[in-house]
């Protein structure tokens, strides 16, 4: 009997691996089961210390240069076999792009259910995962009856909170023989710098209130500080200050980032249509009656020429 956590790596252990370990520790404690981990990657060497304080008894480390990148063919059988070997009752992974694929595949191989992309999981006589449904409009508790109960946790949804405790024992395992059907031909890093508007987690948009193209750097500066993509209202695009590709709205792009910052945008419905599904909307506008304040979560009534640089500075400060 064991709780098993899947430690995701990209060269180094990813922060979400520790978040998963943190959640797994609490579940193992509540269930009264030991916690073990699987690591698959090039090498765990030098990173064992990071795994201290999560109550992991043993890490089954499958280390090989050919395992540095994810592969269904290689990873899935390993996890399946370790889970069977340990008689795992709970398996916790990360809901990253690759983690979800791994979890789904392992769940199929084990013939069990999986709560994918959960934002929390707890033990209450069985595993209960909390996960968003309908594009986050509903939060559901999913009680998993099949064993092992599987869950993948959305990154950043639980905090990695190590406690005092020793680093786990590392058991190095030989890579099993597998025939790789799919071949990784190439890896590419996303081009640094500009974030694609529709995929950005944060979007900073400017409207007519920016006054003119000569002031647009204020929007870009704030976006850079927040690691955000830059957007614009139709008025700004129409006026030719920025390219149409940046337009958010009915006739532009539809975005739904975690944070949408609207600067000097009145909030006409044509704009609303492009950003209303954002999780949090922050509005900066000098007109307290502007429509945007009816649409926003947090609003600052003020001159964007003051507020935006101050906000950028504050974000840089807390991020530093």
């Amino acid at each position: 009997m064991s709780v098993l956590v899947l430690l995701e790596q990209r060269g180094e252990l990813k922060p979400c691996a520790l978040e998963a370990a943190s959640a797994a520790r609490d579940i193992a404690a509540a269930a009264g089961m030991p916690l073990n981990a699987v690591y698959i990657g090039q090498s765990l060497e030098g990173q064992e210390g990071k795994l201290a304080g999560y109550g992991i008894a043993k890490v089954y480390a499958y280390e090989h240069a050919s395992l540095s990148h994810y592969s269904n063919d290689a990873y899935v059988p390993i996890v399946r076999d370790v889970a069977r070997e340990l008689d795992a009752k709970v398996i916790i992974g990360s809901a990253t792009a690759l983690g979800k694929e791994l979890c789904a595949s392992v769940a199929a191989r084990l013939g069990v259910e999986l709560a994918q992309d959960a934002i929390g999981a707890a033990w209450a006589g069985g595993l209960v995962a909390k996960k968003p449904l309908y594009a986050g409009k509903v939060l559901a508790d999913v009680t998993i009856q099949s064993v092992p109960a599987m869950v993948s946790l959305r990154p950043n949804s639980v905090q990695a909170a190590p406690q005092d405790g020793p680093a786990p024992e590392i058991e190095k395992r030989a890579m099993p023989e597998v025939s790789l059907r799919s071949v990784l031909k190439e890896t590419a890093e996303a081009t640094a710098g500009k974030v694609e508007l529709t995929e950005a987690k944060i979007v900073v948009s400017g409207g007519r209130g920016v006054g003119g193209p000569e002031n647009w750097h204020i929007i870009e500066n704030l976006a850079e500080a927040m690691g955000a993509a830059v957007g614009a209202s139709r008025a700004v695009v129409d006026a030719g200050w920025v390219h149409h590709a940046l337009q958010v709205g009915q006739t532009g792009k539809v975005v739904s980032p975690d944070i949408y910052v609207a600067c000097g945008i009145s909030g006409a419905i044509q704009h609303q249509a492009g950003m209303r599904t954002s999780k949090i909307i922050v509005a900066i506008n000098k007109d307290p009656n502007a429509n945007i304040f009816k649409l926003c979560d947090y609003g600052i009534v003020g001159d964007l020429f003051e507020v935006c640089p101050a906000l950028a500075e504050e974000v840089r400060k807390v991020r530093a």
Binding site: K137, D297, G299
Partner: peptide, 21 residues
């Protein structure tokens, strides 16, 4: 189904409309 939804809740329906002064 062995992963029943046992409870659902709305996270938040309306915008906060909070003006930070």
């Amino acid at each position: 189904n062995q992963a029943e939804v046992t409870k659902v809740a709305s996270p938040r329906t309306d915008r906060r409309n909070q003006i930070v002064g």
